[in-house]
Amino acid sequence: MTTMGKGAAARRWLRPAMMAFAVACIAAGPAVAQSDKMAPIAIPAQPDAITLNTAPLPDAKAQESWHSQYGSVFARNVTTATLTPFLPDPAKATGAAVIVAPGGGFRTLSMQNEGWDVARALAAQGVAAFVLKYRLNQTPSDMAEFAKPAGPAATPSPRATPEERMAGIAPMIADSRAAFALVRSRAAEWKIDPDRVGMVGFSAGAMLTLATELAGQDAKPAFLGLIYGPLAAVKVPAGAPPLFVALAADDPLFANAGYGLIESWTAAKRPVEFHLYEQGGHGFGMYQKATTSTGWFGDFSRWLAMHGYLKPKAA
């Protein structure tokens, strides 16, 4: 089911909605005792990053920059997409792989808390992980300008249709598809089973993860992990993969709009697991907190094990 380019009405909804969503994401923060002050930093060395074969973002004027905030590091104004491998010890490798999509409202990417730290934890369990630094919507180059409120802090409707959400993220979906193509093209080199490549995403990255499946083209994730993303109902593609969802009940963005996505997957008789934690807010990622949301990664790991991804595939 290809849903990109659904017309002017969707695009009119998406522009203000995505801006409000990004503002709300920044305002929500990770709900931990970390400084919310944004401090510019040098672009970190990324020697293992592989440039994807998607075109640089058209008409981009602001250059990529990075900053620290909430005890993590964030990329901004990404115009060229990359994929960074985190490969397991060959003695522990299971042959499974996960593409990791950090969040940030499509304006930033939480590269450490929702990217590198997740990938390292997966690799430690024998699963090859690949952090996707996808192209982003442009923001002011000047940090002070970027930090100013971009408009009303109202969030977009959590009940917005997937078509509406997908209409404005075609470049990001293209980056995700390119990531799957790259991993599968080098599967033999990286000792990966091309049929066991899944995806996990956080917030906006969760939107991208779901959109990658709903776009119905060539990515075909083996499994999906959506961590504090929207839960609007969808038309589930035939043969949709197993779905893992984690959300905090006090998430300020997506906790009070029903569970249509879960109901959709269940109605389609596709495997789905849903964890609703009492507390955790938005953006908890790999932060260690005094809430049960911190256990999401252990729950996700047990779910991967249940589906056979934490051991080599039986001959």
Rank of each mutant, 00 (worst) to 15 (best):
L14F: 14
S293F: 08
W265T: 02
A91T: 15
G205K: 05
D59K: 13
A119G: 07
F180T: 05
S301Y: 02
T84M: 12
L182E: 10
L109F: 03
P221N: 10
P47K: 12
L261S: 02
S35E: 14
Y134A: 07
M306K: 02
G151C: 13
A233K: 05
D193M: 03
A31E: 13
V73I: 09
S293M: 14
D117F: 05
A22Y: 10
G216W: 01
M38V: 15
A91E: 14
P58T: 08
A150V: 13
N77T: 05
V118A: 06
L182S: 08
M199G: 03
A305G: 02
R184T: 09
G198I: 01
F130V: 07
F254A: 13
A211N: 08
A91V: 15
Y309L: 04
L208D: 02
M19N: 15
A75S: 12
G225A: 07
K269N: 11
F146L: 14
K220C: 11
G104I: 01
A170M: 09
E213D: 13
G229N: 14
P158K: 09
I43C: 15
A178R: 03
I50M: 09
R177A: 12
I43F: 13
M1L: 15
R120F: 07
N113C: 09
F244G: 00
F130A: 09
A97H: 12
F297H: 03
A179L: 05
A290L: 09
R15K: 14
K289N: 08
T80I: 11
H307K: 11
H307Y: 12
G115F: 03
G258I: 05
K289L: 07
P102V: 08
R11Q: 12
T79E: 04
M286H: 01
W265E: 03
D251V: 15
A153D: 14
A45P: 13
G198L: 00
V245N: 02
S68T: 15
A315K: 08
F297T: 03
A170V: 10
I50Q: 12
